[in-house]
């Protein structure tokens, strides 16, 4: 059915180009339906054709190879940020579960942080590169991008992990108390497995957030080599070749799907492990 939906969307696109006038539909002065000429809305064939064109006329690789290498670059940055964000988020969730006072002091901020545009901080991190040394390492521009990814991934993980760690009902936590189990044992044997169904959706959210963070950070920092930069530069070339800008955007979409898909793979791996556990302990 998803395929049908995509096919319908494609058909709708071409139908729109056929039916709506080239200049779009206006009410008074404002354009309410977009223009349908080939510059504003290239044919689907043109969009997919753009991948095959050479990036710079007569030299270098194709648009496709450029998109792929940019996506790979950005994906690694996002992954680094994701990893850092997940670890710190999870540690914070552990602290909040262990010490109620930490939860009461920090949780409102963590929850609220999901409602505010933290991404607005992205340009501010720009100033760090070239001027900061942390733990003996020079702060490179790419670290700013990963830092923002980490920052955005951190919050959903902290909330989801806390929810998951707190999810076992009293009947189960009391049982482990009867066994004189330590906090650590309770964590490993009960809370961690119980938190998996909450962690997975949180990790998916964090992965998507890390991807968006990386792309936006690249744009505001001006980091070349990544997909964000590629989108902007192709967009600036739009007057010359309007269908080209779709290529890196599709690449960015694929990047997001790969990131979330990666977490889904983890889901499959963990699910099996989780259900097997019931027999072994």
């Amino acid at each position: 059915m998803l395929v049908l939906a995509l096919v319908l969307l494609a058909a709708l696109w071409e139908l729109y180009k056929l039916v709506i006038p080239a200049d779009g539909v206006r009410i008074g002065d404002t354009l309410i339906l977009p223009r349908s000429d080939d510059t504003s809305m290239p044919h689907l064939s043109q969009i997919f054709g753009a991948f095959g064109k050479q990036e710079v006329a007569g030299a270098g690789g194709t648009v496709l190879s450029s998109v792929i290498s940019s996506v790979w670059y950005s994906l690694r940055l996002a992954a680094a940020g994701f990893a850092v964000g997940v670890v710190i988020g999870f540690l914070l969730a552990l602290a909040m579960q262990r010490l109620r006072i930490v939860e009461r002091a920090l949780l409102p901020y963590v929850v609220l942080s999901q409602t505010v545009p933290l991404i607005a901080l992205a340009p501010l991190v720009y100033g760090w590169s070239g001027n900061l040394t942390l733990f003996g390492l020079d702060w490179k521009p790419w670290m700013s991008v990963s830092a923002i990814s980490a920052y955005l991934a951190f919050f959903p993980v902290a909330v989801g992990a806390l929810r998951g760690l707190s999810s076992p009902p009293p009947v189960q936590t009391e049982l482990l108390r009867c066994y004189a189990a330590s906090w650590w044992q309770t964590l490993v044997r009960l809370r961690l497995p119980a938190s998996v169904p909450y962690l997975i959706p949180a990790l998916k959210l964090a992965a998507a957030a890390a991807v968006v963070g990386a792309i936006v950070a690249e744009i505001s920092i001006g980091l070349s080599g990544g997909i964000g930069r590629l989108i902007i530069s192709y967009a600036q070339q739009a007057t010359g070749d309007p269908s080209r800008v779709y290529a890196p955007i599709i690449g960015a979409a694929v990047m997001g799907l790969v990131a979330v898909g990666g977490v889904s793979l983890l889901d499959v791996a963990l699910r099996r492990y989780h259900t097997h556990q019931e027999g072994t302990w």
């Binding site: 992965a207 991807v211 792309i215 800008v245 960015a252």
Partner: peptide, 9 residues
């Protein structure tokens, strides 16, 4: 999963 904001251009 997709960065929707990337559609802006």
């Amino acid at each position: 999963a997709i960065p929707i904001v990337a559609l802006t251009p």
